[in-house]
């Protein structure tokens, strides 16, 4: 399906939203880390998922949303019914 907008137009429309969401993520991670008990969650699987997600965000491509979804998904088990 053809895009209805140019890359420049989309960037212009999305810039503040992207900026806002990235800063929100940074602030959330800061909040967790500056708390008194960070060591309790340092090895939490979810923090590793965030790190993996940030690596996907830093990569090129048109399927980063799908890749992030898979980071947060359980694996499919073939022959699960048997």
């Amino acid at each position: 399906m053809p895009e209805t907008r140019t890359a420049e137009e989309i960037l212009e429309q999305c810039h503040l939203e992207i900026r806002c969401k990235l800063i929100e993520i940074a602030a959330c991670l800061d909040r967790i880390e500056r708390s008194g008990e960070f060591d309790v969650v340092r090895n939490d699987r979810r923090l590793a998922q965030y790190q993996e997600s940030l690596q996907v965000l830093a990569s090129d491509g048109v399927d980063r949303a799908e890749k992030l979804q898979m980071i947060f998904s359980d694996d499919y088990i073939p022959n699960w019914s048997k």
Binding site: M70, F72, S73, D74, Y76, I77, W80, S81
Partner: peptide
């Protein structure tokens, strides 16, 4: 929902 969705959707399609 959430982390169960991918596996569950594949299971549903299997059935």
């Amino acid at each position: 929902h959430l982390q169960d969705k991918y596996r569950g959707t594949r299971m549903i399609v299997d059935m």
